[in-house]
Amino acid sequence: MDRFLKLQTLLGVITLILLATGLWFVWNAPADFQQGGAVRILFVHVPSAKMALFAYLVLTLASVHHLWKKGEGADIIAEAAAPVGAAFAAVTLASGSIWGKPMWGTWWAWDARLTSVLVLFILYVGIIAMRSAMDDAVRAGRVTAILVIIGAVDLPIIHFSVQWWRTLHQPASLGGGGKPSITGPLLTPLVIMSIAFVAMGAYLLAVKARAVRDRRLLTALEVERELA
């Protein structure tokens, strides 16, 4: 247990170093000839979007494992992963919207990818609400796990339907064209920031999972004492 805490602290330090390195590269990155300085927004936006999806993958794997093996550990990971994913999705939405203002001229253009992330964010909120709305913790774990799996099946359908919807009904000049790809000297900060965000996600997950685990232990002990 103590060793686990040391590992977590180490992860936190690695995250800080990676973030500092990434930010140094971002600071020194040349301005994009099309987007100018606004390209710096993408160094936060793109890794956040990737992590919002990656967190859902972790959430799904933990949920499947929990349903299958009925292990408590997987359920703790699942409970902790939902708010972490929600945080990444929230930053993705905010940064995408702010990027859109100078680039598209509006805060919100119902861009296909941003719309999908918005649905993902609502789904994360629903998953958190589902768990907290039930008194029986064991049942809450199982119901939430099934909800996560339903969402995992639904997300690709949402993504494709929104994609078709936006590309068929919107001229490509506004929003439909999506974001230009990043190459050359702008790639280095993006890669480092992406790695840093993976470390940050893992660290946040560990911090939250520790709190969840302790709360469950405490509740169990209190119940035990009431019975005794």
Binding site: A31, G36, G37, A38, R40, I41, V44, H45, A94, S95, I98, W99, K101, P102
Partner: peptide, 9 residues
């Protein structure tokens, strides 16, 4: 350019 937007993000 766009410093305000970048800082906000």
């Amino acid at each position: 350019d766009y410093a305000t937007y970048v800082l906000a993000v």
